[in-house]
């Protein structure tokens, strides 16, 4: 019976994982995602999440692809977040965008210059390097996370992704 692994055995060390300062733009964040191919034990992938740090190199948050896409959406399409729900919630037909595609592209380019700090998500959970794989699964499932920062003695030392956790489970089961 193989032993279940600890977080530090599965995590990606911080220096191998893409991260950016919070004032970087969405455009730079996109470049980061598109140009940083991760190679984890021969399995290659593009990062779905980028870590965001402050100038003193403290972890502030994460940004996912869909956060970026949300940040690029024209104002009139964006659905209000829970915190700022409006009195009348009218769903806009996205087909409207076809009406003036050029303008939309220009708009996207403009919005791509927004700082990533406007769309990033706060860190809700971290996990300790010595923790058990099952604890990671629990945190990911209960908080709907695909990536959790790994700490040791209060410092971020890496990240653990759901895809790697899943791969670990697969080797156990298959």
């Amino acid at each position: 019976m193989p032993e279940i692994k600890r977080v530090e055995e599965i995590m990606i060390p911080l220096n191998k994982y893409p991260h950016i300062p919070y004032w970087f733009t969405l455009r730079q964040t996109i470049a980061e995602m598109e140009k940083s191919e991760l190679d984890i034990n021969g399995r290659k992938s593009l990062p779905r999440v980028v870590l965001v740090f402050d100038e003193k190199y403290r972890l502030m948050g994460t940004v996912r692809r869909r956060d970026i896409m949300r940040g690029l959406e024209p104002e009139f399409l964006s659905s209000p977040s829970q915190q700022q729900s409006k009195w009348f919630n009218i769903q806009v037909d996205p087909n409207l965008m076809e009406l003036s595609f050029d303008k939309v592209v220009i708009g996207i380019r403009e919005r791509a210059e927004r700082p990533v700090s406007e769309v990033m998500l706060p860190i809700v959970r971290t996990i300790d390097a010595g923790d058990h794989l099952m604890k990671v699964i629990y945190e990911m499932v209960s908080n709907d996370l695909s990536l959790v920062p790994v700490t040791r003695e209060g410092r971020v030392i890496g990240v653990i992704r759901s895809v790697d956790v899943f791969h670990e489970i697969a080797t156990l089961i298959l």
């Binding site: 991260h19 300062p21 919070y22 403290r58 860190i123 920062p149 410092r155």
Partner: peptide, 16 residues
């Protein structure tokens, strides 16, 4: 940079 959003200061204790 714009100043960092206030909401995020809470996590500033973690150094990366």
């Amino acid at each position: 940079s714009a100043p960092p959003p206030v909401d995020f200061k809470g996590f500033a204790g973690v150094l990366g």
